[in-house]
Amino acid sequence: MKKMKVAFFDFTCCEGCQLQVANMGESLLEVLDLIELVTFREVMSERSEQYDVAIVEGSITTSHDVERIKKIRETAKVLIAYGSCAAIGGINGMKNNFGLEEIREYVYKKDARFFDTIPTRAIHQVVKVDYAVNGCPVYVPEFVKVLKAALSGIPYRVPDYAVCVECKLNENECMYDKGITCFGPVTRAGCNSWCINNNNICYGCRGLVSNPALNGQKDILEKYAVPLPWIENKMNMYNKPRELGIDDPAKTELRKLES
């Protein structure tokens, strides 16, 4: 098999997901055997304008970002939205809770006018995405799965069921039984309930399932006397860009299967 040229790009993000690649250990060496890494700022200094697979981290938050991602899309045969900022808008989406002017002045103070800003969008809300790796940060075993799918040209579907499913299969004691609130019931699985396995709650970092029972979840939280504004804040944390009313990445996959 001819080695595919792979390039990493980052938009608005913390680059934590790229760091996960550097943390891959053994499987990184195996993966590096299969691909030719041409651009990866996190671990190398060379850059190339030729690539087959673009792995894109971060969300779209400026008009400059929009132009840049369109160029990447034109060049790449395959585009992977990498990490929750890219796949669902992620944390950056919290910006969309405020007026653009208001938030710009809050962040940049007197220099605000020099900084262009647009509402936060996930990559698939701007250009077509072929694969998505949700997670903040990404779960490495899932990334390896997606990469294998991308390199062999078969679709990968982000699971559209709750983190609870994986959590139960792992036979963890439920956080609610310990009196702790957890977002597993409305959060999209695929991380193998990573946080709960390690005694932490699910923060909902992979985003909501496509058809969440938000009323049901609010019922649950109210029953456990968690204040509603707190819940709304938490649900906002990763999911705000959903309100822009654009498809789910899973549906992008479906479209692909149909075409």
């Binding site: 499987s27 195996e30 993966v31 055997d33 299969l34 390896v144 799965k145 294998k148 062999s152 069921y161 709750a162 609870c164 499913v165 139960k168 299969l169 439920c174 597993g184 019931p185 409305v186 399932v209 058809n211 969440p212 029972a213 049901g216 979840q217 019922d219 649950i220």
Partner: peptide, 26 residues
């Protein structure tokens, strides 16, 4: 009321549905 978390079926002693998945090595 249901949030479709799947807990009821995943813990049931008589549920036996499964999904078959292929996993290719590197």
């Amino acid at each position: 009321r249901c949030v479709a978390c799947g807990n009821c079926t995943n813990v049931c002693p008589t549920c036996y549905c499964f999904d078959v998945r292929d996993e290719i090595n590197l």
